[in-house]
Write a protein that binds this DNA or RNA. Structure first.
Length: 244
DNA sequence: GCGACAG
DNA sequence: ATCTTGTCGC
């Protein structure tokens, strides 16, 4: 898994920060984007990491937007080349994700990321970055509030509260804490490239008929983990004549 | 300077 | 992200 052919991949944190400034300037942060019903295929992407090595498996799972059934899957195995640094997650995850997306027979109409988009120190989180690199509408659904603040949303599914960046003088709304299941901890939704917060939240609710997390991220998470476990097993119990 | 901080 | 068992509930 390499870097995207047309953009330099940073080797240092300073370069990564500079690249994020460029990504933000290139991003479409204003379009309302596709509403539910206006896209046929929605993809979820995620990456699994091997604790004992630098092996990674990225997965892209495409769902039928109406039935939420899996219609296509793709994976890409590679090696992590960038450490996890809060605020720079995209540089660790995107190379593999891009490679997996390219293996799909056709690009999806929308991509859901496991992490943030606009809700980011430089407004260039994973979903914004992936959107700029692919040109696809893309938003983020994260499991924890990162460095942002929020008040507890109402207790029922669909209730929400603003996610705020308190590091700004007038605290800015960067996303939404959204309850996808009654009585269960909310998820944190933020806009990305080519889709606004309103539609991102609407899609998130459509994608969570029965679980806290969207079916897209559940699918991608499960697939990347299964493939990684498979590779790890084959290493311990080699099959066939292949070796080394 | 230190801590917190998506995955 | 990953290491980790059983348990409670829909």
């Amino acid at each position: 898994m390499g870097a995207p052919a047309d953009r330099p991949w940073p080797g240092t944190e300073a370069e990564a920060v500079a690249e994020q400034e460029r990504i933000r300037r290139a991003a479409d942060l204003a379009s309302p984007g596709p509403a539910p019903g206006e896209v046929d295929r929605i993809a979820g992407v995620d990456v699994a990491y091997d604790p004992g090595s630098d092996l990674t498996v990225a997965a892209a799972v495409v769902l039928d937007a109406a039935t939420l059934e899996v219609v296509e899957e793709a994976v890409h195995t590679g090696r992590s080349r960038f450490p996890y640094v809060p605020g720079l997650l995209a540089f660790r995850e995107l190379p593999g994700v891009l490679a997996a997306l390219e293996k799909l027979s056709a690009p999806p109409g929308l991509v859901v990321c496991d992490g943030y988009g606009y809700a980011h120190p430089r407004r260039a989180g994973l979903a914004v970055h992936l959107g700029v690199l692919t040109g696809l509408p893309c938003f983020g659904v994260a499991k924890s509030p990162f460095a942002f603040s929020h008040t507890e949303p109402g207790p029922r599914r669909g209730d929400s509260s603003p996610l705020l960046d308190g590091r700004r003088d007038p605290p800015e709304v960067v996303g939404r804490a959204l309850r996808t299941r009654s009585g269960v901890k909310p998820v944190f939704v933020s806009a990305g490239h080519g889709i606004g917060l309103e539609h991102a939240c609407a899609h998130t609710l459509r994608l969570t008929p029965r679980h806290r997390l969207p079916e897209t991220t559940r699918g991608a998470d499960g697939l990347s983990r299964r493939v990684l476990a498979e590779i790890a097993r084959d290493r311990r119990e080699p099959r066939g004549a292949a070796r080394g």
